[in-house]
Design a protein around this nucleic acid. Structure first.
Lengths: 346, 346
DNA sequence: TTGATTTATGCAAACGATTACACTAAATAA
DNA sequence: TTATTTAGTGTAATCGTTTGCATAAATCAA
């Protein structure tokens, strides 16, 4: 019945031109009230919908924004995407989602696909293996705003929204110190990603600021899963002086560590404290709820969207290079709050 | 430097027409090898990228697919979206994500936005409050494939991919019976969503098939969060004959129930068994891991994408109305496997 | 040499909307 | 009455590609 009604169909029915229809629909003042009303009504009755593609082609603005993440179904990135979508939708943008599967090849391919699709901007989080930068130059050459979130690369003219990972590592470690822990181990990730390196530096600084020694024996680089957490505990427990706390850059690693510690009969939080990172949904659901550093992903997504919007609405097209850094918050839970220290907590 | 190179720019540089350039790039046989090579090379060197928008306008095919979910950041829907993206991306489609926030108003608005964007198809899961159907007719009027996943409405000509919720409820309940449970309560959701109703019917049938009584006293309709699970347990424990098992249509409710049961000093799984639904990530991470019915969301997403692809590539445009029903699988874990019955499990 | 066929390319319309410019008729000013 | 403004609408170009048709040059057959 309706199937693809255009302004020409409306024009033909009313014996006027498409131009008039267009102007009537767009509230152009040079149209008589009677014609406007007539057009509006027949448009509605015929089931007309504007073809945004034609508009996009004409105006050079597609109202599409590309979002690139490693995987969409990890809680952290899913929350970010939700934040982005919720900030962009009211402004009339649609969000195209792409996954890199943590590979550079897919990242490059995906960027090109989005450029072909004429997106008005690209918001992305780097994949772990990303080394190349020419695909970013492609984006910049086309004068399309590029915004990094969480995992960024330092490129001139590119904005980014991250959390202060140094601060996150610092407060987590400081919290453990305040609980009375003396030998705090740290489970980090691959330092080729800035985020892990920064968290580690926050850890180190917190130790030094509070008169504790920084010893690389207690720093392990591990993968981000529970198995890695378990074997990390095994490694740590072979040391001459065993640690009495762990700050992990990943909640999954923290969970694995806790499970192994409990298997070994170690009492948490009395004899050992653990703090994770990311505030994954499961951390608060465990019987022994896990302390973690919240990254406010929803807020990060909204912020990334806002930075993009600032960029495109920039009066006089001043390309502002914004580097936004959100403040992470420690959520202390059972895994790290000792009974005796409870009054000091929070 | 490069900024929006079109085939005209290439044509001008080579003193040929845009038509020739277009044909050369598309491997049209009526172009000499020398010209083709020349065009290819200059296109590459000038950094040309095809404008899919222009192509979409001309061809009437945008290669965009809209995906509508209540929230993108729930594990279930995020996994489905991942599946959809992974199946559609290789076929040259981009995926636009929209959220309804479980409201009908946003659902309608979103459908219209996607129709404006000229998507080639819409894959969606209904929002809980959805009653209207005119927006679905809009979609069908434009001859655009519509595929429901998980939460569907029975509309003629519309395909759907769901799991067999009846079967899911049946196997979960049957499993509890096999564990020796005699009085099995059931925590369901709002029956205006087919999925909850079907799970409940599977529950009922399993009871009857195994000679147990179906008693509505043991059926509670609750919201999908841990609090609801806790108060449901409180309600159940006031009954004359207390239940010795719960089949919950939601993992969160199951978790809340377990927490309250443990607070009451009831031993799981020895004295009480619980099975949830959805196989949320946290269920396997708990100390007392929770049995749950897996819905294979990733597979569901891939399947929904496949049904869409079948629809558009349908030879002779036979509009096949596919109703795909995936089989759910019970994952039995600690919360429902009694020591004595362990040999029977699996 | 001439006509028929093939090969490579150009021309122009089309997709649907917007918009600068032109035009007509009516209203107003002189 | 005549000139000038104004309101309302039409004409046509534009965005970047694709593609049916026309055309020119080159090849081939006789």
């Amino acid at each position: 019945m309706s199937e693809k009604i255009t302004i020409y169909d409306i024009a033909k029915k009313l014996n006027i031109t498409a131009a008039t229809v267009s102007r009537a629909l767009n509230n152009n003042p040079r149209i008589s009230d009677t014609t406007r009303k007539l057009v509006m009504e027949t448009a509605a009755s015929m089931g007309y919908t504007q073809n945004k593609l034609a508009l996009a082609l004409k105006s050079g603005k597609s109202n599409l924004v590309g979002v690139i993440v490693p995987y969409i179904d990890t809680s952290f990135f899913a929350s970010i995407i939700r934040g982005i979508e919720e900030a962009l939708h009211p402004e009339g943008y649609n969000v195209i989602i792409c996954q890199t599967h943590e590979t550079e090849a897919k990242e490059i391919e995906t960027v090109n696909t989005l450029l072909n699709a004429q997106v008005d901007g690209i918001l992305m989080s780097l994949s772990k293996t990303s080394k190349e930068t020419t695909h970013f130059e492609h984006i910049l050459n086309k004068k399309i705003p590029l915004v990094f979130f969480d995992r960024r690369k330092n490129i001139k003219g590119v904005s980014s929204v991250t959390i202060d990972d140094f601060e996150g590592g610092y407060v987590a470690t400081k919290h453990l110190i305040e609980q009375g822990c003396k030998t705090i181990a740290h489970l980090s990730g691959d330092w080729s990603l800035e985020i892990y390196k920064n968290r580690s530096e926050g850890y180190k600084q917190a130790l030094l600021d509070h008169g504790l020694k920084y010893d690389e024996k207690y720093l392990l680089h591990v993968k981000s899963d529970t198995e890695a957490g378990k074997s990390a505990v095994d490694t740590l427990m072979k040391l001459d002086k065993k640690p009495d706390a762990i700050f992990s850059s990943s909640d999954f690693v923290a969970l694995g560590a806790i499970q192994r510690l409990q298997e070994l009969g170690i009492k948490l939080p009395d004899d050992f404290c653990v703090v994770g990172f990311s505030n994954e949904p499961f951390t608060q659901l465990m019987e022994l709820s896990i302390s973690s550093v919240d990254q406010a992903p929803h807020e990060m997504g909204r912020m990334a969207a806002k930075v993009f919007l600032d960029q495109v609405s920039g009066v006089g097209k001043v390309k502002i290079e914004q580097k936004v850094e959100l403040t992470p918050h420690l959520i202390s839970r059972k895994s790290s709050v000792k009974p005796v220290a409870k009054k000091k907590a929070k």
